[in-house]
Design a binder for these strands. Sequence first.
RNA 1: GGGCCUGUAGUUCAAUUGGUUAGAGCACCGCCCUGUCACGGCGGAAGUUGCGGGUUCGAAUCCCGUCAGGCCCGCCA
Length: 602
Amino acid sequence: MRTHYCGHLRASHTGETVTLFGWVDRRRDHGGVIFVDLRDRTGIVQIVSDPERTPGSFETANDLRNEYVVRITGKVSQRQDGAVNPKLPTGEIEIYADEIELLNAVRKQLPFQVSTAEAESVREELRLRYRYLDLRRERMAQNLQTRHAVVKAIRRFLEDAEHFMEVETPILTRSTPEGARDFILPSRVNEGEWFALPQSPQLFKQILMVSGVDRYYQIARCFRDEDLRADRQPEFTQLDMEMSFLTQDEILDLNERLVGHIFQTVQGIDVPRPFPRLTYAEAMDRYGTDKPDTRYGLELVEVSDLVANSGFKVFSGAVKSGGMVKVLPIPNGNDVISNVRIKPGGDLFKVAAEAGAKGLAYIRVRESGEIDTIGAIKDNLSAEQKQELLSRTGAQPGTLLLFGAGPDDIVNPTLDRVRQAIAKEMNLIPADQLNLLWVTDFPMFEWNADEQRLEALHHPFTAPRPSDIGDLKTALAQAYDLVLNGYEIGGGSLRIYQPEVQRQVFETIGLSTEEAQEKFGFLLEAFEYGTPPHGGIAYGLDRLVMLMAGEESIRDAIAFPKTQQARCLLTEAPSTVDAQQLKELHVASTYRPKPKSEAADS
RNA sequence: GGGCCUGUAGUUCAAUUGGUUAGAGCACCGCCCUGUCACGGCGGAAGUUGCGGGUUCGAAUCCCGUCAGGCCCGCCA
């Protein structure tokens, strides 16, 4: 029976006989004395075996290899002076192994080295295929631990301090329009009908408010059948919350205390409260994005009014056709960014082009305050305009001004990306800083050009500001996102709780009364029976853990993630199924393997 | 659906840019070593250079196709 975990042993245990279980992290064989680093999830402790002092274990110690599983019984003893290892928390002691029992050997060559001492980066394909070994490694073991600690802190705060109740909602539910593509499952019992996996528990949590649950939360699995990214998986976990009878400010305050509690408990970090707030309009204006990274400056400056009548057609034309001209001022940018990089073919040009821009105009501010740029700009700006440009952008000698000109929805994303690329390159991002901020007052809708209709920016249950109900098309929403260092980690809103308003919103996004009734009739009906004002929020748990663990991929915050092709390399899911299974489900596959290309043969 | 990057021993990388026998660290196997902690020493085994085709006297290297993994766009809160 285990008496201790490896990583918990200290000098205070000296003299005790302990029994440990774990994996051989490493073995150092000196011919006479053998050292074994024994590892379990808490850490490593050194085991000693030699023929004279521990004859009972020496033979087995000889046979041990990396990652063998063993039971060890022995006495904790203080290490000699000079033999102490300050790098290990257990480095002051070691265990003289009276007994070593080999519980299981490794029968195959390890696909990669597991040892904590090996920091070599292993191909991710291998890590995913042998995930159980990868999870033994220190980095991933720590990430799992961090994730656990975050969830635990959430539960303690919400349940113990704030009277929240966890309620599970169905995984088998119905397909809903709007939002992402659903994963669907055929119903065997109800032939011809389909379940969908939930994109989020949105509808259920609102119904729980109608049910009087008052404060709901759930660590909820969500599913969206869309293409993957470094921060997106087809199944992911949300901290999902919904509350009745609270104002937006009360909800934000509660969430600030929640987030503060998480950082305090998990990492011992005090995040200052209240969190700064930016309106959506302000965020777009100053950063060109609704999730700005505010750890560094490089704020955008709009100059549309200044250049609207200039002779430089790129600028004046952009403004005349309803667009804008904005500047990204880069202090000391002249030294860092050459013209070649801004012009076609250059890397910054590519960044801008990817966002849809045709190019980046620029002005360099020289020592005397002289401006250095292409003739077309220089010649078409008056001295006053130049002066105003410099003072408005705060330009100093050495400053590089990059211009975006065109439609708003090109200029903003372009300068946002360029801003991030430059901040990274110029090392302007303080690594250890945590900038949490709320972005509020989102528009209710945004125009979807493909479908030629308005679309809910957040989701169609978001409440408009009461003062904006008159004109829903341009209304602002009572919605809020929590942003951490440029990542959206949570978002929510006050919900519509009057069926009339809900119907109007459905109408605005082009959902007919009949369609709304068919898709969401159950919700609208529930709202007829006494619905409390309510609102909520959902956090991307994986993304939060990723950031707290200092990882750059969401996969490193998830025990068993999928590849970018949405495959699980461990289980080889998805897989084909028997024809019989399909038949029972009343499903036939239309898939036909592509014929092999014959070009190679002939 | 599209763009870019990567794929060489179990693994992490190298291979003088098309040149003859594809190397090294760690892991693995054998021998030696009683205080190491990334122990050390000696020796050994280990390769369809992802796969298929092409160009060439000659291909890990160049070309085409294909598969897998990654980053991104589209898509997605």
